[in-house]
């Protein structure tokens, strides 16, 4: 089957998609967007988190056909067109929130969604919002720090 979707603002299509293929597989293997990661394929790790029609989802749990005609944003769509990093991306680098980085794409999308809903989250809110995203390297402290920093950067009075 053919799957068409608007991914990071660009319409992309994939042909010969098997019915069993996930959105994650199609993004990674058929659309040339390997930024979203596969660490469990069971909805447990959050590494594959993308926006589908404005809602963060585990792309591994979404059948590719379900995303047909949809609007998707992945980690590859976070930075500005001129390459300027999103404040969250910058904060992740600066806070040391990136070690191996395998969890990073999913965490960035999940944190992006949190800050869109809640520009000034308490730590408990950050923890709740990121509870579906596993990280094996950092122990999460520097991830929390990164999200706090990004929230500061993005607030209108201080933000960019």
């Amino acid at each position: 089957m053919r799957v068409t979707a608007k991914v990071n603002g660009v319409t992309r299509l994939a042909d010969d998609v098997w019915p069993g293929e996930s959105l994650l597989f199609v993004l990674r293997e058929r659309m040339g967007l390997p930024g979203s990661k596969n660490a469990c394929e069971q909805g447990e790790c959050g590494s594959c988190t993308v926006y589908l029609d404005g809602v963060p989802v585990c792309a591994c749990l979404v059948a590719a056909g379900q995303a047909d005609g949809g609007e998707i944003m992945t980690v590859e769509g976070l930075a500005a067109a001129d390459g300027e990093l999103h404040p969250l991306q910058q904060a992740f680098i600066e806070a040391g929130a990136v070690q191996c980085g395998f969890c990073t794409p999913g965490l960035l999308v999940a944190a992006h969604d949190l800050l869109a809903r809640q520009p000034d989250p308490a730590d408990a809110d950050i923890r709740e919002a990121l509870a579906g995203n596993l990280c094996r390297c950092t122990g999460y402290e520097q991830i929390l720090a990164a999200v706090r920093t990004a929230a500061d950067l993005m607030r209108p009075e201080t933000g960019r």
Partner: peptide
């Protein structure tokens, strides 16, 4: 760091 936050860093599973 930049490659890792933009999704461009190529892990073993990303090779193609």
């Amino acid at each position: 760091g930049r490659l890792k936050v933009t999704g461009e860093f190529a892990y073993g599973s990303d090779l193609w």
